[in-house]
Design a protein around this nucleic acid. Structure first.
Lengths: 157, 157
DNA sequence: GACTATTCGGACTTAATTAGTCCTTATTAT
DNA sequence: ATAATAAGGACTAATTAAGTCCGAATAGTC
């Protein structure tokens, strides 16, 4: 019903957490705790993000996750679509000629522009932007950003 | 997952069908057949539309449904929200202060503008507009608009 | 007034999706 | 070797989606 799922929400939080310190590997437990996500649940989501190559993983002792590319080149939309699959506001938009009413249905065009607007908004800010926004908001609220700024990089690269 | 449900899709089709001939009462069976909707399913949807007063009903022989207000003053958004409830792209938008992260979460603002854009698009065209668009498209496609233009008004008002 | 067509209202069903949990295997630093 | 950690998949419970069915209410017609 037009609502972001928890998969998406948690995924965004996790990527944002990593974006605050883009080169550092960060354990799943830390992400889960800092972002208020059930650990085992987050595991599934991180796997998906790794498969879609938004994130790199390292197993074993002191393993964890790091961003696979620069937060300058990662938008909210990319994160969400990596997890939930491509966004289509209506089935009739999924594939050209999918819906037999396309050539007479006047609503189709409205959906198309609505979707375009939505995607534009989700593409309009990169993870880098959002980290910056978050720091600004946190400063204004006189709070800390869930320890994201206290983390120690384990290894760069 | 960000997709219009069949309830919404069918509801829009039904209202659009009625909008083609705004003063006429039209039987449910006719709407269902013309728009390719299971009759019993449509019944539920029409009841909802009637409860929300987008549509008036008349029972008994030669009963049916008619628009409750002018198609000039009914937008796609109104129809969809009547059926699916208000649109919120993320839970954090449902109520101010709902999400405890609001004051530090940088994503919140993106959702807010994305939602605004989406709603603007869905509000941008009235049912009247859409009927006109449909006729134009149908003409171009050399087809008829599902018999909607051949109906006889049963009773005005 | 009886009959018939039609909507109203709700109960019911089935399948898919959402939101997790849990356990075993593979990998890696020490 | 060992301990820590991610990968992968099986499993569950709750909710939503998509429909079906049926009896009661209502309105036009004979």
């Amino acid at each position: 019903m037009f609502r972001l799922t928890r998969d998406g929400e948690y995924g965004v939080r996790a990527v944002l957490h990593l974006s605050a310190n883009p080169l550092a590997f960060c354990g799943m437990r830390e992400i889960a705790r800092a972002q208020g996500i059930p650990e085992n649940y987050l595991a599934k989501i991180m796997q998906q993000l790794a498969r879609r190559e938004l994130v790199r993983s390292r197993r074993g002792a002191s393993g964890g996750y790091a961003l696979a590319r620069s937060p300058r080149h990662m938008t909210l939309r990319q994160v969400i679509e990596a997890i939930e699959g491509p966004i289509f506001l209506n089935v009739c938009l999924i594939k050209k000629g999918e819906c037999p009413r396309d050539d007479i249905c006047p609503v189709h065009d409205v959906w198309r522009t609505a979707q375009k607007k939505l995607l534009q908004a989700l593409d309009s800010r990169t993870m880098e932007d959002l980290v910056r926004d978050g720091l600004k908001k946190a400063r204004r609220a006189g709070k800390k950003l869930n320890g994201a700024d206290t983390r120690q990089p384990r290894e760069a690269g």
